[in-house]
Each structure stands twice: as C-alpha cells, then as structure tokens.
Design a protein around this nucleic acid. Structure first.
Length: 1044
RNA sequence: GGGUGAUUAGCUCAGUUGGUAGAGCGCUUCCUUUACACGGAAGAUGUCGGGAGUUCGAGCCUCUCAUCACCCA
C-alpha cells in the first residue's frame, strides 16, 4: 500500500490517541524501566475552562518533558485534574439557571443549588480534558483529580479525597495558629457579594473625577491660608473658615472619621487638632471630625488634606488604624448605602459623642452603626455619589473656580462668557475591578478568615534562596522574593456556596452574656436565667468558635467549654442549628422550657456552622499531594511526592506557585517540586494580549483542525525560549506543518526506493563514509536534544531537530544515498538501506515528544514493532562514541565543494540543467581521495561533467578555493565579464573589511599579550585563510580582465 | 510611584563563562531533475534602540537616556 502524499492529521490524530489510551500508554509508571520517578502536576484548569492558547502552550511543554522521560524509562506520572473555580462556576451555573427559567440561587436554597452545580459539572465539566487530548497530552487520565471531590454533597463518581484534604489542612492550620478570624478591610465584590483576594482584582485606569469640597471649621473658626511657590514666595494668602478636601469618591464622606494632613504641612499646622464639619447630611446633625496629622497625605496632591474613611479605602484604613479613628461602614453587601440600624440622628449623635470623648467604642459597636442619613439610605453607591455632590454644591460648599468659554450671543457674535462653577478635575484614576464580575470592587470591613502568611512564608522563601527550588527564568526569583517578603495576610473565606464550607462552628458566648451565678452556689436558679432571657442580648453578643473536621469532633470542644458553666448549663447537649438567629431562638426556648419543667436533660446548646466557603486557591495549594490521595498515605503519595517540575504561567506565580510551596511546607514539610518553569502569556503575532473584544484570539483547536496538533506543538516548542515573549503567528505554524510533510516525504522516499522496513533495527555497523557521517550527526543531535531538554530549552531542542532532519538527513543524506541505492554495490547498498532506516527511526524517536502523532504514524509503517513509539526506548549513544572525525571531515568537504560549485554556477548564470567540466589545480592526496570516494555524489549534485587536472587555469575561469586544492570552472564565453568582475570586487570589499579587523587585532600588542592562546591562533588561521581567499579572488579578477 | 523584562535582518525571534552576528517566515532570481512546489538551488538585507564607560576586544558587563510591555501599588 503506497503512502499517502501527506499526513492526514485530522484523520489520524484521533485514531492514534485512542490507540495510546487503549494500551494504557499514559498510565503512571507505563514503560518504566528504572526506579527514578518523574512527576509533573498539571496546573489544574478551571472546571469551567475551555482550551486557549495559554493552555496549549503550557501543556505542550509538559507533554514534551513527560513523553521524553517516559521513553527514557522513568516511572512517570503526569497528574491531570481541574479546580472547582468557586466564583466562575457559581456564576456560570447561575446564568444557566436564569437562561433555563429556573428559580434563582437564593430561591432554591443551598443544597438544591449545589445539586445543580454538580449536574452542570457532570455534563460540561470535562470539556477541557477532551480538548487537551486533541493536543496529544499524555496525562494519566485514570487519575484525573478535582478539587471538590469527596465533598459532602458530591454525587456518585465524584468520591475522592480532596474535601478531606482541604478540611484536614484547615483544621491543622487552625490548631497551629496559622489561621485566624478577623475584621479587616478586604476587596468586596458587590456583584457576587463575596470577598475576593487582592490577586483577583484588576486595577484599571479609567476616566474619573476629583471633586473639591469645603469642610467648614467648627464654631466658625478661621485661619490664614498661605500658599507658596517653589521658591517660597507667597502666591496666595487668605482667611479661610474651611479646609479644602479633594476626593474621587464623595459618597464615602458620610463615613469620614477624620481629616488628615502631613505633619510638615505648614498650611494647616494652625488648625491641626481642631474639628471640622462633614458638609453633607441633615444640617441639624452635621458630624464634626478631627483634623489630624499622618505621614500618608501627599502635600502636593490635591489640597494636601485627605479625608479619612477607614472602612472604604485601603490607605485610609491604615491611617485610621494608626490614629484610632473609627471606621464607619456605609454600604451593604450589594454596594448600596446601608438601610439598617437606628435613625441617622441617633447614630450621628453617638458618633459625635465618640469624637468628643464622651463615649467609648469598640469594633462591634462601630460596625453596627449606620451613618447614612435617611435620604441616602438604600441608594446604590453611584447614585448616592451623584446626590451627595448635588447636595453639597447646592449648599455652596463645593470649591468653585472660574471658567471662561466662547459662546455666540443672540446676535451671533462670539463673546467670552465667564462662569463660576464647581471645581471638578477630570483625571485618570486607577479603579479596582473584580476580574470575574467586572464591577468596581468596594473595600469593605468584614469578618473573614485569614491565613497568617507571615508565619508560613519562611520555608518557601528559603527553598528558593538556598536553591532547593529553582525558578526559571531567574528573573522569576526576584519577583518571588519581592512578593513573599512583603506578603499580606491571605483572606481565604468567600461568601459563596460552591466550595469547601469552612469547618468552623460558632456558639453564643454564654459567659460573656451574664450567665453568671449570682449566688455563687455553682448552679443557676430560675431567677438568674430568666433575668438573662429578659435582657434579650443574645443576638448582639459575642461568639466563640471551634474548628474540627466533623460536627462530632467540634461537639466535644464546645462541651468542654460548657462544662465550666454553672449547672444546669454545664450539662447542656450540643446541637447543630442553621444560623445564629436560630441558635439564639433555640437557646431561649429551651431555657424557658427548663424554667417550667426543671428537666436538665432537655437543655441544649445550639451551635451553627460558618456558612462561607474557602478560596479555591486554598484547595489548589494542596494540589501536589491532594491529587495523590493525601491525607491517606497512598503508595502514589509515597512514590510521586514531591514532584519534579511545575510548568506554569508567570501570572500565577503568586496565586498558585507560592501557595503550593507554603502549603506543602506547612503540611508535609517538603517542597512540592524542585523546578518551576515560568512562561509568559501567549500573545498574538503583534505581541498584543489576546482578547475577545480585540478579536485577535487564536483558538488552538482551530489551529489543530487546520494544521494538525503536531504543527501547533512544534511551533509552541520553538517559541519556548526561556523568558521570551510568546508571539504566535499562523505563518509559523504553517511552516512547521510543512516540516511534518518533509519528514513524511523522507519516509515516502524510503518507500519509493523500496527500502526494507522490518522495524526496530539496531544501529548498523558501517564502513561507508557517508553512513559513518550520518550516524555521527545523529549522535550529535541526540546529545543536543537531551541537553536542551534537560535545561528546559525547548526551542533549542526543536531547532536542532529541525536542522538535523531537514538540513542534514533530507538535504544531504538522502541525496547522497541515491547513487548507492540505485547502484550495483550490493554490500554498500545493503548497509546504506539499513543505515537509512535506522536514521529515520532515530528522527521519529527524537521528534516524538514534540510531534507525537505523525511520528507514531510513521513508526507504525514498519513490518513489526515491539512497542508503540510512545514507549520506544530513548537512545543513549554519544557523539564521542559515534562521530568519525575523518568521515566528518570528508563529508563536510564534499558538501562544501558542492555548495561552492552551485553557488558559482548560479551567480555566473550557468543554466541550471547544464553539466559543466571541472578543473582542479594541485590537488593533494587527501583531496584526491575525497574526490575519488565521492565524485559520483559531487558530479550528480553539482552537475559536473568531468574532472581534469591542470597546472594553470584558463582565462575566464571561476575558481573555487578548497582545503587541499583549488577547483575551477572554465566559463570562457559563458559569463558576463564586467558583471563577474563587479561581483568579485564586491566580495573583495567585504574581505578587506574583515582583513582590516583581523590584522588590526594581531598588530595590537595588548591583544597578543592578553588574549587566550587559542583565540590568537584562531585569529591567525582566520587571517591566513582570508588572505588566501583574497589572493585567489585577485587572481580571478586578473584573469577576467585579460579576457576583457 | 515601585518592581521585572524587552529593544538584533521586512516580520517573529535565537545568540549559555565578552573573541567580531544566526534561524524560521517573507522577499528576489532560477528550476516542475522520478521523496517532497507544504519542494529544490542560489541570493539580498543588520552603525545588534541612543549615548558614555570597563576591556586588547562589547549584541553580551557597568552607568545613563529613550521607547515599549507586563506585574504590583
């Protein structure tokens, strides 16, 4: 059966992939012939993900390494899987519910919603896996992991250990004091109504405005405001009864706790410590806030005075913390102005009392206060802004300035009109957006769980510093240090449903509620308990919490605390309820019941579980061991952890890499891998980010459809220079598709010449120079490829294979073999046939990690094979063992001569088909033997008719200087003499430049003194050759001139 | 504002202890010679972003400027 003209990738790829899978070719340990393991953990794509070029690139590199190591006989595992992508998945399912006209999430409730998510996952969650298969990814799919596996509500088929792992790690870290709960300013996504980490926030520069408002000083106080220029000359001096504040977010003024100025700012020094009025809200309850000093304000920015709204700005938060300024939260979870709490008049009065020092405050008290005046309550934050601006301006408290513009008056004449208008600067501001929701992120003061990263960052930092973990390229290390050395606490709670629910239960802190024993008799009497109930303080009070893997475990912890309470509470049974309100209600009810029947066995102590879930990256941080069965001590965990290499995008160095390192160290005390290979974002051919809005997105599957997976993979490998920018262009992919066809045609060549293809040939013992040479070249490229892959220089490996296969095997070896294959020397023919098959097999083996499909297909053409190519043995022969210096020299001489003759022919317009005679002068013995051995090849490929020894070249002869003799092509009458002279003179000019440099260096005594011996020798040799060349060209010109 | 990196042929990029620049694609010319036109042969194209310094010698090291990109504020 004749081979097809080209490789039909679309038809073959699926068939080949299925064959690999059917033979379990990718299973952990498949093709193992040694004990060393090689483990790569796939960076888990989102379960909602679809394959993009970034995945394609990333997974191609992983596959190259894995296939290479597997062929080398390592016990290889490429562990696949996906993460559950909390926000993205929840969003997707919510959208689907809406599209299907089903009840909303809140309407259907948590359990029903999660059921829907799992349903969605079963239907669509495997998309990206199928797509990775199309690329040829050789993961052990039987081990596919999922970060939500084993969750309590997981359906059949989703059993697994990940939930256990996550919960266990949380509890351990909680018990070790590495996780804590706190009220902190976090990035709040008002769309998803959840906290998100600062890494999930995109800061984008947008057109914004800066408004300038007057905060009147209390009690009509005034001061002299003096503005000076750079030279200290007064440019403005006026009496003011206000301080001017610039803000981009006027709606947050309602929560201001102070106005801050820089301590060195002379303009405001006289009013520091005084009070000023927030110029918004009902006139009767205008709040007064202090003017304080802090290092934060920039004297040159705005007015130099900054309003401090601790609960709504990260910088202000720090100032407020330093200054003990209350942080009033103004918004609800949706980003609307709060509508809860007491009437504004009462809240404002309390706030004023706090400022006046008449009332104390704590976090909880401040958090409960709502300082939004009634007229703004319930408004969206952006509507509130508009209203606040309008109200302040109406009241005349906006800073005004004059604007002059040209208008046409009633008569149509242009006139200048000057108006005094509010001073509003239009300016670019950096605004935070949720990377999923795309809405403006609101800093919000909320109770969240945090990992105390400061305490676990050390080992990760050390691992890189002491070289246990290498980050490539090296620049990644600097970035890594910089980030880890300035690490912020990691907020791990998310107000979502899709995720691992935090294993913490809360109970009312009865001790702090006055469940005290007035009589000191170790028991509470009815009066004491009823007194407590009547105070109705249960809901406002404090809580205590405990973490445990299960409710049963946590029950004991609560019981232990309860035991310290007076009888009969000490005997109350711990029960789980839905939430705090239910808990308070349940407790009150059972106490009331007890009051009637005095039956202590009916007393219960209700606790409720934290409703929030953990950040997806918390589970992803456990990926290196969670995928291997941890916390079970599985054989896989034992064997494949720690892994070897992590290949991932530079953009998730912090998101994920650092967290895996911290978590592996915190949990297992080991680094999860020894090498991190970071790559950049794949961009379009112009170097721009791919984005849907720009329409420059390259879909890797479309590329695969058009050019085949191998072409895409080879392109990816070829681009993968360490630290390089990745620009993907279709022309390139096309070029490498052509390379596949070239390889295909080399086999078609072998078929055409009817070369036997028994399969699995061993390296032939050869006597032909040609065969010795190509075997040596093969050994060289094998070494180059291994070195390149060892150093993660995928581009070098790809380029070396391209140059070898095309530039050596196809361009020269196959051409050279033709006369032998067609010739009568049976022994030479047999040897060459065997060598040719062997060399082609080596091409397949060495190319297989990069181009798995076409190579497997060609491999399968042999009569028989012991194994599929995916499991073929990777060669270990060396250049030292196989390169024959003499054969090398001779073949290079032949190639050189052929190229020179061709070049001269082409440049002197000898018709391509014409055969020309060749002359040679003073050919030495080596040259003669090289000619004798290879003249058939030379004559065929350079179209030479005959060789004649001459003592002098005739006039009009083009000369070819070679090592061991000078060749000449007599061209009298065939060439354009002036053109040829011009050509030679041009090369003479180039030579002269080179000669000048070489002579200059050698003449310089300092060069001869300080340069290494071999460099000097090389330079001398180079000079000698160039001078030789120059002489020959000059001689050639002279001969041509005689003609003219 | 801080950090990191980039700037080399028309385009996309290599260039590994500093020794005088390479590849692919594209382009020009020629060739349908029985593996391959997704091919073959030949060819042209670079003050290696600007400037300064170290050195016998700098694309590579140092400083500086410019432009661009990305990350973090």
């Amino acid at each position: 059966m004749a081979m097809d003209k080209t490789f039909d990738a679309s038809a073959a790829e699926k068939r080949i992939y299925d064959a690999w899978e059917a033979s379990d070719a990718f299973k952990a340990g498949a093709n193992k012939s040694r004990d060393e393991t090689f483990t790569i953990m796939i960076p888990p794509p989102n379960v909602t993900g679809v394959l993009h070029v970034g995945h394609a690139f990333n997974n191609t590199l992983q596959d190259i390494l894995v296939r290479w190591k597997r062929m080398q006989g390592y016990d290889t595992l490429w562990q696949p899987g996906q993460d559950h992508a909390g926000i993205a998945t929840q969003l997707m399912v919510e959208k689907k519910l809406a599209a299907d006209g089903l009840p909303k999430r809140a309407e259907m409730g948590r359990d029903a919603f999660l059921e829907k998510v799992w349903e969605w996952k079963a239907e669509s969650g495997g998309t990206i896996i199928e797509q990775l298969k199309r690329l040829g990814a050789s993961c052990d799919w039987s081990r596919n992991a999922f970060t939500m596996s084993g969750a309590p509500n997981a359906p059949e088929g989703e059993e697994g250990n990940f939930h256990d792992a996550v919960i266990k790690v949380f509890v351990k870290m909680y018990e070790d004091g590495l996780i804590y709960r706190g009220k902190r300013l976090v990035n709040w996504d008002p769309h998803f109504e959840t906290a998100i980490s600062d890494l999930e926030v995109e800061n984008i520069e947008v057109d914004g405005h800066m408004w300038h408002f007057k905060y009147p000083l209390a009690n009509g106080a005034t001061y002299t405001y003096i503005e000076k220029d750079e030279d200290g000359v007064t440019i403005l001096e006026e009496e003011r009864d206000y301080i001017s504040i610039a803000t981009t977010r006027p709606e947050t003024m309602l929560g201001d706790g102070a106005v801050a100025v820089h301590p060195s700012d002379e303009r405001y020094a006289s009013i520091v410590g005084k009070l000023c009025e927030i110029p918004v809200g009902p006139k009767a309850q205008r709040r007064l806030i202090p003017i304080i000093t802090d290092e934060y304000p920039d004297k040159d920015f705005g007015s130099g005075a900054v309003k401090i709204t601790g609960a709504h700005d990260f910088n202000d938060y720090q100032v407020a913390k330093r200054g003990g300024i209350p942080m009033y939260a103004l918004m609800d979870t949706k980003g609307a102005m709060r509508a809860d709490g007491r009437p504004y008049a009462e809240e404002a009065a309390t706030a004023q009392a706090i400022v006046n020092g008449e009332e104390t405050f704590d976090e909880a008290k401040i958090a409960a206060m709502n300082l939004v005046p009634e007229e703004y309550r319930g408004l969206d934050r952006f509507d509130a802004r508009t209203r606040v601006i309008a109200d302040i301006t109406d009241e005349g408290l906006a800073v005004m300035h004059d604007v002059t513009r040209v208008e046409k008056n009633d008569d149509g004449e242009k006139v200048e009109v000057t108006e005094t208008v509010p001073y509003v600067e239009a300016k670019k501001i950096m605004q935070p957006f949720g990377d999923r929701s795309k809405v403006v992120i609101e800093p919000a003061l909320t109770d969240q769980w945090f990992v105390d990263t400061d305490k676990i960052v050390g080992p990760a930092l050390d691992a890189v510093k002491n070289g246990d973990v290498t980050i490539m390229p090296e620049s990644g290390e600097k970035v890594f240090y910089h980030w880890l050395e300035n690490i912020e606490p990691w907020c791990i709670s998310r107000q979502l449903w899709w995720g691992h629910q935090i294993p913490v239960w809360y109970g009312l802190d009865l001790a702090s509620h006055g469940f005290t024993d007035d009589e000191g008799d170790g028991a509470l009497d009815i009066v004491e308990m009823m007194g407590l109930l009547s105070r109705q303080t249960l809901l406002d009070g404090n809580e205590q919490h405990h973490a445990a893997s299960t409710f049963d475990d946590v029950k004991d912890q609560f019981s232990n605390v309860m035991a310290k309470l007076p009888i009969p509470l000490s005997n109350a049974r711990v029960v789980e309820v839905a939430d705090k309100a239910t808990a308070a209600h349940t407790l009150a009810e059972c106490l009331a019941q007890y009051a009637m029947d005095q039956d202590p066995t009916k007393l219960v102590y209700p606790v409720w579980r934290d409703a929030d879930v953990l950040d997806t990256w918390f589970s992803s941080g456990l990926w290196p061991f969670g995928t291997l069965g941890w916390p079970e001590q599985t054989p896989e965990l034992d064997k494949y952890f720690p892994g070897d290499v992590l290949i991932t995008g530079q953009d998730i160095l912090f998101f994920w890499v650092a967290r895996m390192m911290m978590m592996s160290q915190a949990v297992e005390g080991e680094n999860p891998f020894h090498t991190v290979y970071l790559h950049q974002l794949v961009r379009d051919e112009k170097g721009e980010k791919m984005s849907k809005t720009k329409g420059n997105v390259v879909d890797p599957l479309v590329v695969v459809d058009e050019f085949g997976a191998d072409a895409l993979r080879f392109t990816m490998a070829q681009m993968a220079a360490l630290g390089g920018v990745l620009k993907l262009s279709e022309d390139r992919i096309k070029g490498y598709r052509n390379f596949g066809t070239k390889l295909w045609n080399a086999f078609s060549f072998a078929e055409h010449y009817e070369i036997p293809n028994p399969g699995d040939t061993s390296m032939p013992v050869v006597s032909q120079t040609l065969n010795k040479w190509i075997i040596g070249e093969t050994a060289k490229v094998r070494e180059t490829v291994d070195h390149a892959l060892t150093d993660y220089r995928f581009n070098d490996a790809a380029n070396a294979l391209y140059a070898f296969t095309w530039g050596k095997v196809c361009d020269w070896y196959l051409e050279f073999s033709k006369p032998i294959l067609q010739g009568d020397d049976a022994a030479a023919k047999d040897e060459t046939q065997k060598t040719l098959r062997w060399v082609l097999d080596q091409c397949l083996i060495l190319l297989h990690p990069i181009k798995p499909f076409i190579t497997e297909e060609l491999w399968g053409l042999a009569d028989s094979r012991a194994k599929m190519l995916v499991h073929a043995d990777w060669p270990t022969y060396t250049a030292a063992g196989l390169v024959d210096a003499e054969a090398d020299r001779e073949m290079n001489w032949v190639i050189n001569l052929i190229e020179s003759v061709r070049s001269n022919r082409a440049q002197t317009h000898v018709p391509a088909g014409a055969k020309v005679p060749l002359l040679v002068q003073s050919l030495d013995a080596k040259g003669q033997s090289a000619w004798d051995n290879n003249h058939v090849l030379i004559q065929r490929l350079a179209r030479i008719e005959s060789l004649e020894n001459v003592t002098d070249f005739p006039k009009g002869c083009v000369t070819i200087p070679m090592d061991g003799g000078t060749f000449g092509i007599p061209l009298e009458g065939l060439i354009d003499v002036p053109e040829e002279i011009a050509r030679l003179e041009k090369s003479l000019g180039k030579l002269a430049k080179e000669l000048g440099g070489l002579r200059g260096r050698l003449k310089n005594p300092k060069f001869v003194e300080s340069a290494p011996e071999e460099v000097i020798a090389e330079t001398r040799e180079n000079l000698r050759l160039r001078e030789d060349e120059e002489a020959q060209i000059k001689a050639a010109i002279a001969r041509l001139q005689e003609l003219g």
